[in-house]
Simulated assay, not measured.
Amino acid sequence: MGAAREGRVLHLPVLRASTRVRTPRAPRTHHVTTHITVDVDDEAGTAAARSYVTVFQALPDFPPQPVAAGRYRDRFARRDEQWRFTERQVRIHLVGDVSRHLRA
């Protein structure tokens, strides 16, 4: 679903252009991440994670409900003793009523 993108700078314009913002800087959604599995390679200073995500949305005239579900695949690197995201793949498998979450 969509082209591959890299880096924070490339993601922000896409998210801002496609997401409806209801309150200052918030689309009124909650992303629930479950079944998280992390594989760490301490020697290489890298890690990979897999998880499921369900996106819920609620508005005054839109009862709380799931609007999307899918998977995250993440990669991390340890730099200066801190773990940092290096990659996130998002695969959305189920889509509900996103009419109030995404722009047409």
Rank of each mutant, 00 (worst) to 15 (best):
V53S: 06
T37S: 02
T33F: 07
Q57V: 02
P13D: 02
Q57W: 00
T19E: 09
S18E: 08
F85H: 15
A3P: 05
A48W: 03
R88C: 03
A26S: 13
A17M: 01
F85W: 15
R20K: 10
G96E: 09
T46G: 06
R78G: 07
A26W: 13
R8I: 14
D80A: 11
W83N: 12
V53Q: 05
V55Q: 03
R22L: 10
T23D: 13
W83P: 14
L10P: 10
G96F: 10
D97M: 04
H11I: 09
D74I: 03
Q82E: 12
R5L: 15
D39W: 04
H35V: 02
E43T: 13
T23Q: 15
T29C: 13
V95D: 01
V9G: 14
L10R: 11
D41M: 02
A4D: 02
A58E: 04
L10S: 12
Q82D: 11
R91S: 11
D80H: 10
S99F: 04
P66S: 00
D61A: 08
R91C: 05
L59G: 09
A104M: 06
R22E: 10
A3N: 07
T37Q: 03
A68L: 05
A104Y: 06
I92D: 08
F62H: 09
D61V: 01
L10A: 11
F56W: 08
A4Y: 02
S99N: 12
V53L: 09
R103T: 13
T19F: 12
F62P: 06
L102R: 13
H11K: 05
S18K: 05
R88Y: 02
A48M: 08
F76S: 04
Q65S: 14
G7N: 07
F85S: 09
V98E: 11
M1K: 07
F85T: 00
F62T: 01
A49D: 02
A44V: 00
D97A: 05
D80I: 07
V98Q: 05
H101R: 01
A17S: 09
R73M: 05
T34V: 14
H93V: 07
P64V: 08
D41A: 01
G7Y: 07
V98W: 04
H31G: 13
G70F: 11
R50M: 03
E6T: 11
R16P: 00
G45Q: 07
